[in-house]
Design a binder for these strands. Structure first.
Lengths: 130, 130
DNA sequence: TAATTGGTTAGCCATGGGGCTAACTATAGG
DNA sequence: CCTATAGTTAGCCCCATGGCTAACCAATTA
């Protein structure tokens, strides 16, 4: 579990760079060699290879060398893992929103009760507790 | 659109740090003051404030100072924006998988046709085109 | 008014990230 | 066998990041 967290570190750090996000997007459309991947970028190969390496150690990308060409492909697992994190946070967030909404409803009811001095015999402003 | 990309840079970079992810998770449960947020961390306040600032400039967190206490709350928009990116990638990925599956199906059919020299009168290996 | 509390600013330091060039290895092709 | 291709390794540079301390406001509170 703590492993997954530090994996998240690497995945998010990898995705924080536009070059690397572009590589991931490109790889979503299918595997490609390093040269093919590097082609659209005006960047020296060694610099580009660093990005590949970051993506690889983050678990987002797998690569295999055959002959003198290294072919890269996306490993969707890591992507899904990061996506899961968002969904968990959103779940917590939405649960809180629900609770907040319930709280607002409660407030409304109480204020309505306070503004309607008909049934309950309340004389002065009786809003403070709880 | 290019704006969103550089915003993504910041959001992902912000989320690449475990401290900051913890802050976001904490903030999912409701707003809190800087002091409350910093409490669980063994870190000098100025260091912690840097994290807050990173989260704020990334758009993930909003804060407001009243009196001498600054209250932070989550801005879900940025989170959702990042989540969207994943979903887009997954959509492209899955579309590709579908195409690949279709391709495999096609291959199967062709191989089946090749192995079944009954109906279609094909003499030699007639697989090459398209 | 004096002291505490809650943040903030300024400035230092070490590490790491992202870029480069140059030189090297190893396969493919002529 | 020689050359071009595709990566790789080594090493340099600069600046951003993440941590710290020390000093400094500005509201509370005694």
């Amino acid at each position: 579990m703590a492993n997954q967290l530090s994996r998240l570190d690497q995945v998010f750090a990898a995705l924080a760079d536009p070059t690397r996000r572009a590589i991931v997007m490109r790889l979503c459309a299918g595997e490609a060699s390093v040269g093919e991947l590097a082609d659209p970028f005006e960047m020296a190969l060694p610099s580009f290879m660093k990005h590949i390496h970051v993506l690889e150690t983050s678990g987002l990308v797998l690569s295999e060398k055959s002959g003198r060409v290294r072919t890269c492909r996306l490993s969707p697992d890591a992507l899904v893992g990061a996506e899961d994190w968002f969904q968990q946070q959103r779940a917590i967030w939405e649960a809180r929103l629900d609770r907040f909404e319930a709280y607002v409803m409660q407030m409304k009811k109480e204020r309505a009760a306070a503004n309607r001095p008909s049934k309950t015999a309340n004389k002065t402003t009786k809003r403070k507790g709880s």
